[in-house]
């Protein structure tokens, strides 16, 4: 609340508006490279959510820690995808924060799986820094934060 409040005022007040036919309600985060980003986040959300739903509902007792971590990752991905689609300044900040949390999660869990493999009878989406997912889990938050750095 106390920080500067960038509510979307009348059109054009924030200087040059790059894309004229923006969605009503302000800045679109899903345009240009943002579309690719939201697509990849959408894919990884579907992947993580379906994986964690399956694992937690069928074989949770086998590896509680990895499955819980995957579930947490799925929630973060859901929220980022939703924020990107919703757009606007607050969503941008929230999504950026979550990208940072995601990156921290990938790094911590990735290191953890390398140091203490015995704690992980089964893989999570973030095991070995997301190697099973072509390292997308570690690349996405970085590109995400770069994309969300600028106010749109």
């Amino acid at each position: 609340m106390p920080d500067t409040d960038h509510t979307p005022a009348a059109a054009g007040s924030a200087g040059a508006a790059p894309d004229a036919p923006a969605a009503p309600g302000g800045r679109r985060l899903v345009s240009g490279p943002g579309l690719l980003l939201v697509w990849l986040y959408g894919v990884i959300t579907v992947g993580a959510v379906s994986r964690s739903v399956y694992q937690i509902s069928t074989e949770f007792d086998r590896a509680p820690l990895p499955y819980t971590l995957t579930g947490a990752a799925a929630l973060v991905y859901c929220f980022i995808t939703y924020s990107l689609v919703r757009g606007g300044e607050r969503a941008r900040r929230a999504a950026r924060l979550c990208c940072a949390a995601e990156l921290a999660g990938v790094l911590v869990v990735g290191t953890w799986t390398l140091l203490r493999p015995e704690a992980f009878p089964d893989a999570t989406v973030w095991s070995q820094f997301g190697m099973g997912y072509l390292f997308i889990p570690v690349i996405l938050p970085i590109t995400g934060m770069l994309w969300l750095r600028v106010r749109r």
């Binding site: 899903v30 345009s31 240009g32 490279p33 943002g34 579309l35 690719l36 697509w39």
Partner: peptide, 21 residues
């Protein structure tokens, strides 16, 4: 899904998204 997204982005980024899909 990627094709539908590319309909909303009539630039090269739509093509990139379909390629990624």
């Amino acid at each position: 899904a990627a094709g539908l997204l590319s309909l909303s982005e009539r630039t090269k980024w739509g093509s990139v998204t379909v390629a990624a899909g």
